[in-house]
């Protein structure tokens, strides 16, 4: 299960993507993924906001992650 990383999320992890299936206990929901990120990389906890997109739509914490989903970490946006 690939997770795409953008903006400061890419800098925090040091990569443009990471593979969750390599993790011992892959997160099963958006909320768990956020908890994993914040505990593995404390810098995520310092951001103004942290959102996750599943299949290129913003996803609430309760959304379940399925194999084959396209998951992306969305740090605070700053377009315009």
């Amino acid at each position: 299960m690939e997770v795409l990383l953008f903006g400061i999320a890419k800098d925090i992890v040091g990569s443009t993507q990471m593979d969750l299936s390599e993790w011992k206990h892959p997160p099963s929901s958006v909320g768990e993924l956020k908890d994993f990120l914040c505990s593995s990389f404390p810098e995520f906890g310092k951001l103004s906001s942290l959102a996750v997109a599943v299949n290129s739509e913003y996803a609430q914490d309760a959304v379940i992650l399925e194999a084959g989903d396209e998951i992306a970490i969305i740090p605070p946006v700053s377009g315009g």
Binding site: S48, I74, P75, P76, V77, G79, G80
Partner: peptide
Amino acid sequence: KERVPIWKKEIFKNKSVWVSAH
């Protein structure tokens, strides 16, 4: 500006900053 996933990095002479990140 609120919603679209686009990120802006400001490049200064001696540093660079992701805007609004913190």
